[in-house]
């Protein structure tokens, strides 16, 4: 399982209010949410993003609210993977549960520039910046996390594991 795309690079403490402003939380429809993704820090993001693209952020990515709408908006905007030195803990948990791939790698977050083309191999954690030729290694996902992401999230992963109703 891999990701490949161009990079949108942001700074430290990208919060859930800029990922998806609360004024749009009166819907939970993923495609509606995706239309407003990153709107308050990058108004042109939704026009420029293509399927497979990658977000590279600074430390504490996703801080703030527990809204699952944040990883949902990112995922449905077409983003295949977020790379940052660290993630806020609720965002981290929600991203995995939603099947959005996230990788912690400080060196990659530092060494990759905006608009670079990057490839990621989730099984090895290898991040390859095709634009500047640099290579980085993030800690790969344990098997069960990779399976959750492949199953499109926790629900897909556990479906069939809940006992039948009597």
């Amino acid at each position: 399982m891999n990701a490949s795309g161009k990079v949108f690079k942001y700074g430290a403490n990208v919060d859930t209010d800029v990922i998806i402003p609360a004024r749009y939380l009166n819907t939970a429809d993923p495609s509606e949410l995706a239309k407003h993704c990153m709107e308050d820090i990058d108004a042109t993001f939704v026009d420029r993003v293509s399927v497979g693209d990658i977000i590279v952020g600074g430390p504490n990515f996703g801080c703030g609210s527990s809204r699952e709408h944040a990883p949902v908006a990112i995922k449905h905007s077409g983003i295949s993977c977020v790379i940052a030195p660290s993630f806020a803990r609720i965002f981290y948990r929600n991203a995995i549960n939603m099947g959005l791939a996230i990788l912690e790698c400080a060196e990659a977050a530092e060494g990759i520039e905006d608009k670079d083309r990057v490839e990621v191999d989730f099984s090895t954690g290898v991040i390859h910046d095709l634009t500047n030729g640099k290579q980085f290694t993030a800690k790969p996902f344990p098997d069960f996390i990779r399976k959750i992401i492949e199953a499109d999230g926790l629900v897909g992963y556990i479906s069939g594991k809940i006992p039948e109703c009597k």
């Binding site: 527990s66 809204r67 699952e68 609720i90 948990r93 929600n94 549960n97 939603m98 999230g153 926790l154 629900v155 556990i158 809940i162």
Partner: peptide
Amino acid sequence: TGVGSTDLACAMA
């Protein structure tokens, strides 16, 4: 502690 909607759903079950 705070969690997201998927955790809420699975915990309610």
